[in-house]
Design a protein around this nucleic acid. Structure first.
Length: 509
RNA sequence: GGUCCGUUCGUAUAGGGGUUAGUACACAAGAUUUUCAUUCUUGUAACACGAGUUCGAUUCUCGUACGGACUACCA
């Protein structure tokens, strides 16, 4: 393992569907690690399984990274001098490496059909055992180790389908180092002779991954914990190829788990539990099923990334709000947690709230405007900033500003029953009628001015504030909610205030 | 079943041989307020269990339990 070579990491997803939370976090941690160390972040598409290919998935991955602000330095969509970066386009590269491994006695041809192996597996299973294709069984199976060189070649020449399997050593202790987990121990006897090269002419993940990481001079492999069990195989492949001196260092990330119950987060959980598992909305082209995306649900990419970064990593202090630049600065793999973390959708909302509040009213106003346009609600452009400043403290999303502040744009069409019951007393109509006349004569309808005049009137009449303000609010808002009432009347203006008041006096009885 | 990994409040985590075990989210209470919120204050709540090492263990070691991943010609 060389220590001083340039940091080059890759995010290598399979285009089998949308990228979910776990995948985005893996990409993020790769990116942060690269940038922290002044290295490159590559995107490689691992599409060696043609049967699982999903139309649009690659584009989705690229768009997701883009939305998150993770800039790809090299790879699919970005170019580079180690391409192509799509494994299907590198198809011709892999066969020779597999054959080299056969030549060095580290691999062999196997002619067993999938059906034959299935039979063997179920036979073992019925006896409560596990079939394993390795040193203990390979000598009784249909492969080049049990045939003469000529017989093997004859089968290949005949076009009999074959795979190339790794020849796993028997009973060797392998101790490997993982940046996050430390030493990890394995015994090769428990491992099997993994298929490296499939009968369809494509490599499996294991071969393609190792060959590409080597060829692309990858310095660190940062991937999900589900790959930890195949780490010894990958190590043995590097060794068999004679690439140990340039083998990347490994870091296996903990999994992201379901918010409730057990198991790792799956794409089904999102729609079921009411939160997105995908960065962008995604429609499965095969089933037509659609999944929510963080973007469409109103999350800011910075908040999304910030939330994800803190899921399984922290700098060792109490800091929680980080810009992407700050994350790059602070991130180290050593401080990644070892255990899987349950995803908390509530905390995700809180992160968004923090970013919402931190944004300027001008920026929020323009976002609110988009939403108003989309929902076809008429509005006064000049008032948007004020509305945002009044509402943002109590909002997690831009949509909350609108949903909780609809009264800024539309007069109430109905009055919340329980609030009416609580606040609208027998004399409320009479009081509000008097208030109506007071307001009618106010020329400066700013919050401070209105408040002062109304307060003086209340005091001079010896009324209590609650007796006046509560029904007043119900009349203006339609319910007992919203920000400071005189701020609302200032925004909606005198005419609207009076007309709402009038209507309430007539309607509520 | 086998192999590997993991285990601090409900959740995310800090900490680390001697601490009142810290923080954030969530939750609850109180204060403030003309309402709902906001804000502020306070509170509830955790070292999975059992041995060992040690003067002392939540922290180190080993077991157990539990959880997870893997166990395909999928990645």
């Amino acid at each position: 393992m060389s220590e001083n070579k340039k940091v080059r990491v890759r995010f290598a997803p399979s285009p089998t569907g949308a990228l979910h939370l776990g995948g985005v976090r893996t990409a993020l941690f790769n990116y942060l690690f690269a940038k922290h160390n002044g290295g490159d972040f590559l995107l490689r598409i691992e599409d060696t399984d043609q049967t699982r290919y999903v139309e649009g998935a690659e584009e989705y991955i690229i768009n997701s990274l883009k939305w998150c602000g993770l800039i790809v330095d090299e790879g699919v969509g970005a170019g580079g001098s180690f391409g192509p970066y799509r494994q299907s386009e590198r198809k011709d590269i892999y066969r020779q490496y597999a054959i080299d491994l056969v030549a060095s006695d580290n691999a062999y041809y196997a002619f067993d059909s999938a059906a034959e192996l299935d039979v063997l597996r179920s036979k073992c299973e019925s006896k409560g055992e596990t079939f394993i294709y390795n040193a203990s069984t390979r000598k009784n199976l249909n492969n080049s180790l049990t045939k003469s060189k000529e017989a093997t070649q004859a089968l290949i020449d005949e076009g009999v389908p074959y795979v190339i399997r790794f020849k796993m050593r028997d009973n060797e202790e392998v101790i490997l180092n993982d940046i996050i987990r430390g030493e990890v121990h394995f015994n090769t006897s428990t491992l099997d002779d993994k298929v490296l090269f499939k009968s369809d002419g494509m490599p499996t993940y294991h071969l393609a991954n190792v060959v590409d990481d080597h060829l692309m001079k990858i310095s660190h492999v940062i991937r999900g914990e589900e790959w930890l069990p195949s780490l010894p195989l990958h190590y043995l492949l590097y060794r068999s190829f004679g690439w140990l001196d340039t083998m990347p260092q490994f870091a296996h990330l903990p999994l992201i788990l379901k918010p409730v119950g057990n198991g790792k987060l799956s794409k089904r959980d999102g729609n079921k539990m009411g939160f997105p598992v995908f960065p962008l909305e995604f429609t499965d082209p095969a089933t037509g099923e659609t999944w929510h995306g963080y973007r469409e649900d109103g999350y800011f990419p910075e908040a999304f990334i910030n939330m994800l970064a803190l899921l399984g990593w922290n700098a060792g202090d109490d800091k929680e709000i980080y810009s992407l630049d700050e994350l790059c600065e602070a991130f180290t793999l050593e401080r990644v947690t070892k255990s899987g973390s349950k995803f908390d959708p509530e905390k995700a909302k809180w992160f968004n709230h923090k970013y919402l509040v931190a944004k300027s009213d001008i920026e929020l106003a323009s976002l609110l405007k988009e939403l108003l346009l989309k929902r076809d609600i008429t509005f006064d452009n000049a008032k948007l900033e004020k509305i945002c400043s009044l509402m943002k403290e109590r909002a997690n999303f831009i949509a909350d500003i609108l949903d909780n502040g609809l009264f800024f744009f539309q007069a109430p069409t109905k009055y919340e029953e329980k609030d009416v019951k609580k606040h609208w007393k027998d004399n409320s109509s009479a009081i509000l009628t008097e208030l109506y006349h007071i307001l009618e004569n106010i020329t400066d309808f700013s919050a401070t001015s209105t408040e002062q005049i109304v307060s003086e009137w209340i005091n001079s009449k010896g009324l209590s504030f609650g007796k006046v303000m509560n029904p007043f609010r119900v009349a203006i808002v339609g319910a007992a909610k919203g920000p400071h009432l005189f701020d609302i009347t200032e925004v909606i203006g005198k005419n609207e205030t009076l007309s709402r008041l009038k209507r309430a006096i007539e309607v509520i009885k």
